[in-house]
Design a protein around this nucleic acid. Sequence first.
DNA 1: GTCTATACGGCGATAGAC
DNA 2: GTCTATCGCCGTATAGAC
Lengths: 203, 203
Amino acid sequence: MSKNKNTEQKIFEAATELFIEKGVDRTSVRDIATKAGINLALMNYYFRSKENLFDAIFANLVKKNTKDLIKIMDSDLELNDKISQYVSTYIDILIENPLLVSFFMAILHRSREKITEMDVIHNLYGREKFTQQILDEGKKGTIKKTDPSHFYVDMISMITFPFAIKPLIMDKNELNEADFMEFIAYRKIHITQMLKDSIKPCP
Amino acid sequence: MSKNKNTEQKIFEAATELFIEKGVDRTSVRDIATKAGINLALMNYYFRSKENLFDAIFANLVKKNTKDLIKIMDSDLELNDKISQYVSTYIDILIENPLLVSFFMAILHRSREKITEMDVIHNLYGREKFTQQILDEGKKGTIKKTDPSHFYVDMISMITFPFAIKPLIMDKNELNEADFMEFIAYRKIHITQMLKDSIKPCP
DNA sequence: GTCTATACGGCGATAGAC
DNA sequence: GTCTATCGCCGTATAGAC
């Protein structure tokens, strides 16, 4: 406490960076110890095993990065505004940490069996209030009859997937890092427009 | 040749299945040898290393699964038909092998550095003829001014991403395997409609 | 081409001194 | 709490007999 950072925290942060950057299976506990500037044995003192450390890190990453999104989803905003804000905020989060999607997809393949058992995962997908808003609007006839589960899948697909295939997009369109971020920033408007078009009937 | 399957082929097929199922880094060469029913040393006789074998397998998987899609993209079909056929064919391919997307995403994280250097990867993304068709239609004024690179990203995002988050979709919507496939099948119509709406102006 | 046997290093994990 | 030292295992890769 009186120190700069406690050891547990140093291990946790070093491992987080390495897991995201190199992947869990290509990061050794020795890598983590070196990066954290501590001894190998300390990892096992604080966390029982590498897999245990991974579980804690993954839960933390999900929680930290979905906090703002959940707040928006559960808010009293009107549907159109909610969509705009969600898209924009989500993209901002991923611009801050572009490897997050790719890392998360890798985990989804690696830990298929246990992923739905992780409590924190249930924050991620399909909030009730938002779902209800889409259904309500549909009943009022102001929007097309829209299946909320497909709407939600469309939305997160278009937001997140481009980050997963970032190297391909950059290569094919000959973009550098800054260009890619511009490409992504444009998608805020583009995706919002597509989603609104998909629920609003032609006048 | 006179035998049931030659050894090289047995290794190749066993490794392919294991890589897709468990991931490359969690598959050992001993796993592969056992599954192929051959000796460990044979792997190194035919392929120089595990990484080498992986490269061959990955290239083969991309080639095999994009063949039909490229044919459609490069065909003389009219734009609307081309979109419908592409979406439908792509989804059929993934229904046949639902782990393919998830596996591919994991590789995109694992092998970020070398992925764009793999020749075969350039088949995957943005075919010239299709791009030109979108631009041409835009000029004719029959569709909204649409950026082909965003259109393409939208399309593959909405097609493939749901397979990557399959466990989450199944869990949240309480779907079993058959339900999920029904959910996916419905997306053929849904995605085609969304894409057409995104380029066709309201009448 | 296919096998047995084995080298060698890195892995995750722990015992035990301080 | 933190270290050194080491265990036992499994990873990839190879040498050499058949």
